[in-house]
């Protein structure tokens, strides 16, 4: 339970906050004139240097401060295994592990993470040498189009660490007891990662098997 107290903000809370702000921003204006209130000039972008340790390798990047962690990975480092599904925290396709915790890479700016340690899907395994979680996904056909898959895999690994650390979820019967690795716990904790192909039933089986092999 100790780890839980150190959490600054939960993933669920982050998702809720982002959904509200995104919906508000997306509402059209009734006047029929777009961007009436937009600034009329644009200043030159502010650049800032940031060092990130990604999959064990240190990268030093000079970035537009508006660059999300997701676009830093995809567009500046060509680490396109991390996917852009919504770019505002609603789908989970961009989930990576930041200092061991799962995070939506689209919801944070790269320059906020000086010195951070990141694990992306590319750091877990290769096609010839799959990580046990990746192998379980292939075996159980826990994906179809493959676009949410890297995010599901990173999220599953982060989720299992949260579970092992004793963090309760909405479906945990007892907030004091150690949560169990049940299908319901997996479903609840993975619900920030959408899969429109609908591989959920297989995803639970893959994650359960991979969790068992690591235990």
């Amino acid at each position: 339970m100790d780890d839980c107290l150190h959490l600054k903000i939960t993933r669920r809370r982050l998702l809720i906050a982002s959904a509200v702000s995104a919906s508000a921003a997306a509402l059209p204006s009734l006047s029929g004139a777009a961007s009436r209130d937009a600034p009329q000039t644009a200043a030159a972008p502010v650049q800032q240097r940031v060092r990130l340790r990604i999959n064990g390798e240190v990268h030093s990047l000079e970035l537009d401060t508006r660059t999300t962690l997701l676009d830093a990975l995809r567009e500046h480092l060509q680490l396109t295994g991390t996917k852009k599904g919504c770019d505002h925290g609603q789908c989970g396709a961009c989930t990576v592990l930041l200092d061991g915790r799962r995070i939506n890479a689209c919801l944070t700016l790269a320059v906020m993470h000086e010195g951070a340690e990141l694990t992306t899907i590319e750091g877990l395994g290769t096609p010839g040498r799959l990580h046990p979680m990746q192998a379980a996904f292939v075996k159980h056909d826990a994906f179809q189009c493959g676009y949410c898959t890297p995010g599901q895999i990173c999220s599953a690994l982060g989720m299992l660490d949260e579970l092992r650390a004793g963090q309760p979820s909405h479906v945990s019967a007892d907030l004091e007891a150690a949560p169990t690795l049940s299908a319901d716990e997996i479903r609840e904790r993975m619900s920030g990662n959408l899969c429109r192909c609908g591989a959920y039933s297989n995803l639970v089986e893959a994650i359960t098997e991979a969790a068992g092999s690591r235990a």
Binding site: G81, L130, F137, G146
Partner: peptide, 20 residues
């Protein structure tokens, strides 16, 4: 098993925006 599984699960399958 899907023959494209290892590429998709390791993030190596290139989608439209990712050819570089």
């Amino acid at each position: 098993d899907r023959i494209d599984g290892p590429l998709k699960t390791t993030g190596r399958a290139p989608y439209a925006y990712e050819h570089h």
